[in-house]
């Protein structure tokens, strides 16, 4: 069973992997030792996903364009008014 590094996984991939873990566990076909390893991997995946969701925060900036208008030279606070 190949196990990519969870820390590098996208939310979507981690969630899909968690789905697979849950289905394997629910299927009840895996040996007990392996189930415990799966369970722990599921825990790590859940924590990873939760981390991605927890960091969510709305931050709005506007682009300050260069004189030519086609390059972003920086950002400034944005107020939609």
């Amino acid at each position: 069973m190949s196990e990519p590094k969870i820390a590098e996984m996208s939310f979507e991939d981690a969630l899909k992997e968690l789905e697979r873990v849950v289905q394997s566990l629910e299927g009840g076909q895996v040996p007990l030792d392996e189930s415990i390893a799966l369970y722990e991997r599921g825990e790590a995946l859940r924590a990873h996903c939760e981390g991605k969701l927890r960091d969510a925060e709305l931050k709005v900036e506007k682009i300050v364009a260069s004189a030519s208008g086609d390059q972003a030279s920086g950002t400034a606070p944005f107020d939609a008014g």
Binding site: A56, E57, L58, K59, V60, E61, K62, I63, A65, S68, G69, D70, Q71, A72, T75, F78
Partner: peptide
Amino acid sequence: PVHVLVWPVAVQGPQSAPQVAAAIRGFDA
């Protein structure tokens, strides 16, 4: 909630199209 970057452009008038095109290319750059 995410990080949003607004590239202000004119959405009407003769300057609209060049500004919109420049903004898209600017983001891609």
